[in-house]
C-alpha cells in the first residue's frame, strides 16, 4: 500500500499541471490577501460583518478562497487523477501489475486527500501570516455569534477549527467527485457532472448545501446557529462515496 501511494505521489508531482496549479493558487491567495488587506470589515453574510484584525483575517480569507478550492482546484485534481489518467490509457501500465484495484483507488484517494490538505494548509498559513502583516492585532474578537468573545489564542484555535471543518467538506467532495469520475466516460464530462452535483446538491436539500456554501456553513456552525445536521451528512458522503467507488473499481471492466 505504501509503495502504491508513493508511486501515485511521484506521478502527481511529475505532472507540470500540479506545480502550475499550486503556484497559480498561491498567487491568487496572495492577491486575495491584498484585497482583504485594503478592506476594514469582513462579511459573514449579507448582514453581519466584523472589523478585520490579525486574529480573524485567515477565516475571512477562507471565505474568499473556498470557491476556488471547492469548485475548480479540487475537482480538477480529482478528475485528472481518477478519470483522466485512466481514460488517456496511461493507467493501463499500472492496472496490469500485481496490485488490487481497490487498493489502487484507496492509494489515489489518500494521495489526493494529502494534496488537498496541502492546499488548505497553504491557505491557512498565508492567511495567518498576511493577517499579522496587514492588520492590527486585537485583544478580543467576535464572530457571527456576538455573545461569544475570543481572546488571541482562542481566536487562533477558532481559525484552525474552521479550516479543519473546511477540510472535512473537501474530503466529502473528494469521495463524491471520485465516484462521479469513476462512472463517467471522460474527464470533461466528469468535471461538469461533478460541478452539477456539487451545485445541485443545494437544490436537493439544505443539508447538502455545505458543498457550495462551505464558508457560510462553517461560520454558522462555529456560531452554533447552523440548523441542518452537519457531521452526519459529511461523514456519510465521505464514507459511502469512498466505499462505493472502491466497489466500482474492484468490479468494473477496464476496457481502455
Amino acid at each position: 500500500m505504501n509503495s502504491l501511494i508513493q508511486s501515485e505521489w511521484q506521478r502527481m508531482w511529475k505532472r507540470k499541471k500540479t506545480l502550475i496549479s499550486l503556484i497559480l493558487f498561491t498567487a491568487i491567495v496572495l492577491f486575495d490577501c491584498l484585497f482583504l488587506g485594503v478592506q476594514r470589515f469582513g462579511a459573514f453574510d449579507n448582514i453581519h460583518t466584523a472589523p478585520l484584525t490579525a486574529q480573524n483575517f485567515s477565516v475571512f480569507l477562507l471565505k474568499e478562497v473556498s470557491f476556488l478550492l471547492t469548485l475548480i482546484v479540487a475537482p480538477l485534481l480529482i478528475v485528472d487523477s481518477i478519470n483522466g489518467e485512466y481514460t488517456a490509457g496511461q493507467l493501463r501500465l499500472v492496472l496490469i501489475r500485481p496490485i488490487s484495484f481497490a487498493r489502487l483507488f484507496a492509494a489515489k484517494w489518500l494521495n489526493l486527500a494529502f494534496m488537498l490538505l496541502l492546499f488548505t494548509a497553504i491557505t491557512f498559513m498565508i492567511g495567518e501570516f498576511a493577517g499579522h502583516l496587514l492588520k492590527p492585532a486585537a485583544d478580543s474578537v467576535r464572530y457571527l455569534n456576538p455573545a461569544q468573545v475570543y481572546d488571541r489564542s482562542e481566536a487562533f484555535i477558532y481559525a484552525l477549527q474552521s479550516y479543519g471543518l473546511f477540510y472535512l467538506i473537501v474530503l466529502a467532495e473528494l469521495s463524491l467527485v471520485g465516484l462521479v469520475s469513476s462512472l463517467m466516460p471522460n474527464a470533461l464530462v466528469s468535471f461538469f457532472v461533478s460541478l452539477g452535483v456539487l451545485i445541485g446538491a443545494l437544490y436537493i436539500s439544505d443539508t447538502l448545501g455545505f458543498f457550495l456554501m462551505s464558508a457560510s456553513v462553517i461560520f454558522q456552525l462555529m456560531a452554533g446557529s447552523y440548523a441542518a445536521p452537519f457531521y452526519g451528512p459529511v461523514l456519510v458522503c465521505t464514507g459511502i462515496g469512498f466505499l462505493a467507488t472502491m466497489g466500482v473499481w474492484q468490479r468494473r471492466s477496464w476496457t481502455r
Partner: peptide
C-alpha cells in the same frame, strides 16, 4: 501508453514500486 511527462527511466522506476 506511458506517462509522457516522465523519462523512460522515470516511468520504469515509478512502475517498479508496484
Amino acid at each position: 501508453i506511458f506517462f509522457p511527462y516522465m523519462s523512460g527511466r522515470g516511468n520504469l522506476l515509478n512502475l517498479a514500486r508496484l
